[in-house]
């Protein structure tokens, strides 16, 4: 039983590695954790294009937040 679980884990890890490599190759600038989250989301049925848009949105938001933060910091 436990061996089966570990096997499954290993293969999941392998898949994630492959996907990460792909994402590196494509220059998606996603780290491994985010990628894992995204894969989970897609597996649960989220539209991939929508998810891409969401990430894009969040990135912009994050950058804006970082900017305001950086600006606000000296105050």
């Amino acid at each position: 039983m436990s061996s089966k679980v570990s096997e499954k884990n290993a293969s999941a890890q392998q898949t994630l590695d492959i996907l990460y490599e792909m994402s590196q190759l494509l220059g998606t600038q996603l780290n491994k954790e985010t990628l894992a989250t995204c894969v989970g989301l897609i597996e649960s049925g989220v539209n991939p294009d929508a998810l891409a848009a969401v990430i894009q949105e969040l990135r912009l938001e994050g950058a804006a937040q970082a900017n305001t933060h950086a600006m606000g910091q000296p105050h």
Partner: peptide, 30 residues
């Protein structure tokens, strides 16, 4: 090469969606 390796993996069921997500990601980031 990576795609062929991926297609052998059985853990994820929605390979197509994931690849197209990556594709969309790469487009937006590029």
């Amino acid at each position: 090469n990576l795609v062929s390796r991926l297609s052998k993996q059985s853990v994820i069921s929605k390979q197509t969606e994931i690849v197209s997500f990556l594709s969309a990601m790469s487009r937006t980031s590029s």
